[in-house]
Design a protein around this nucleic acid. Structure first.
Length: 437
RNA sequence: GUGGAUGUAGCUCAGUCGGUUAGAGCACCGGAUUGUGGUUCCGGGGGUCGAGGGUUCAAAUCCCUUCAUCCACCCCA
């Protein structure tokens, strides 16, 4: 049987690479200006890193969807299903709690979950992750949300919908769960099967129901936001005030819910309408207590992640112009055997400044120009016996068809002027978050 | 784990009352054009019709099984 990529994995082909690079470049720019430094952590960690991060309530599902294996040394290792746990492990391991707070870190790379695939959901997927660690201020919550929005905008996305809510503290959550059980008990028979099951296992998640009748029943109920304690309420109000002051567009979602229970206070999601059922581009929240769970000091933090595949999907849907594969400025055609070596040496010199390709076997001009055309070059440079006689090359502009004989030593300057007159789109400066607004 | 749709050339697809050597467009190679490309014209290579089994004189087509892909459910760090 023919070999194929593993289910849920895929290849990023050359034509797609510039889109990835552009997204990561603008991300690094926006986050860097905000004082967020990049950190790269391993793609696998000790199983315990993820076990401890999800805590006791480690949903069986969550465990089941981790790629865990035993290595030859008998260590139980897990391919990261998310970034936060690994980044916090590094934060603790390197004593970053002694650095001036807050410590701001971002990362990008693959993550792995053994899920069933559908649009926007893969088994190896890629995320950009950002953590602001070591501060309780609501300004950090607002900054995190603003950075997520700014990053997506800098990537060129317009149609992002930001939902902000709060899951409160531990007491708030317990209180709301109790309220839900009590409020829904009388109408349990009218709930969908899925929601009845959720009510039993994890009442909060009933709020996520996609069933219209469920939502009708829920409409009369109080939302988590309505039952927040005074501390969480004040924190949330501060976050909202900061976002409004900064003109960050968002809507309050009083029913926002997180699957894992390490989240405290602020929770947020960013959605996009054009990417199918998995409409979340990303999301995040505050996780006071997580660092302590992982064996570090009791340091609070807030973080988010977005899915690179989903953002690229959304960009495609918005028909945002994205760079394609880079094309050579010049393609050098050897017209005889001796010229093969000559153009190779010439290309090597010209590559100090430009993308230059060349043929590896002697071609007649017809074939050679076709090669140059297919390579997508702006100009073709021909070299054969006639040119060798007086140290010239023939330079042909493949767009206009204009052709000239040029002294070999004048070629570099000529190519420079071609490049100046029509810069490669991939090298053109991209707009920043300001111009995207 | 569940449901639906789809699997035919490198890519996008046509081809079902079962009936010659299975087609198109794009891509690729060659020629028209042995020192001038991209347009055009002519020609060519390329197929276990996802796989296995069955029915039939005859299967891409009908039946069974299986695998894969996509979308959705479930779940969602």
């Amino acid at each position: 049987m023919r070999l194929s990529a593993v289910k849920g994995t895929y290849d990023v082909l050359p034509d797609d690479q510039p889109r990835w690079r552009a997204l990561l470049r603008s991300t690094a720019e926006v986050l860097g200006r905000a004082g967020v430094d990049e950190i790269t952590t391993p793609v696998f960690e000790h199983l315990e890193v993820f076990e401890k991060s999800v805590g006791e309530s480690a949903d069986l599902v969550v465990q089941k969807e981790m790629y865990t294996f035993e290595d030859r040394g008998g260590r139980w290792l897990t391919l990261r299903p998310e970034f936060t746990a690994g980044v916090l492990r590094a934060y603790i391991e390197h004593g970053m709690y002694t650095w001036p707070a807050p410590v701001k870190l971002w990362s990008a790379g693959p993550a792995f979950r053994a899920e069933n695939v559908q649009r926007g959901r893969f088994r190896q997927f890629h995320q950009v992750n950002c953590e602001l660690i070591g501060g309780r201020s609501a300004l950090l919550d607002a900054e995190a949300i603003a950075l997520l929005v700014d990053t997506l905008r800098a990537a060129g996305l317009a149609g992002v919908h930001v939902k902000v809510g709060s899951v409160g503290d531990v007491d708030d959550r317990e209180r709301y769960n109790a309220y839900l059980r009590q409020a829904l008990a009388p109408v349990a028979d009218e709930l969908s099967e899925v929601s009845r099951e959720r009510l039993r296992l994890n009442p909060l998640r009933v709020l996520d129901s996609k069933d219209a009748r469920d939502q009708a029943l829920l409409a009369r109920l109080q939302r988590p936001l309505d039952l927040l304690g005074p501390e969480a309420r004040a924190h949330f109000d501060d976050v909202v005030a900061a976002l409004r002051r900064w003109d960050v567009p968002f809507e309050i979602d009083p029913a926002i819910v997180r699957g894992l229970d390490y989240y405290r206070f602020t929770a947020f999601e960013v959605h996009h309408a054009g990417i199918g059922a998995q409409s979340a581009l990303g999301g995040g929240g505050r996780y006071d207590g997580l660092v302590a769970n992982l064996g570090g000091p009791d340091v609070p933090g807030i973080g988010w992640a977005f899915g690179i595949e989903r953002v690229l999907d959304a960009l495609h849907g918005e028909a945002v112009a994205l760079p394609g594969r880079q094309r050579p400025l010049a393609y050098l055609v050897p017209l005889d055997q001796e010229a093969v070596g000559e153009v190779a040496a010439l290309a090597r010199a010209l590559r100090a400044e430009h993308r230059v390709e060349h043929g590896y076997v002697a071609r007649n001009p017809g074939k050679g120009l076709r090669d140059a055309d297919r390579a997508g070059a702006k100009v073709a440079v021909l070299r054969g016996a006639r040119e060798r006689a007086d140290e010239h090359v023939v330079v042909k502009d493949l767009r206009s068809g204009a052709q000239q004989r040029l002294a070999l030593r004048a070629l570099a300057e000529h190519l420079r002027s071609v490049e100046r007159s029509e810069p490669n789109p991939d090298e053109a400066p991209r707009h920043g978050p300001e111009s995207a607004r």
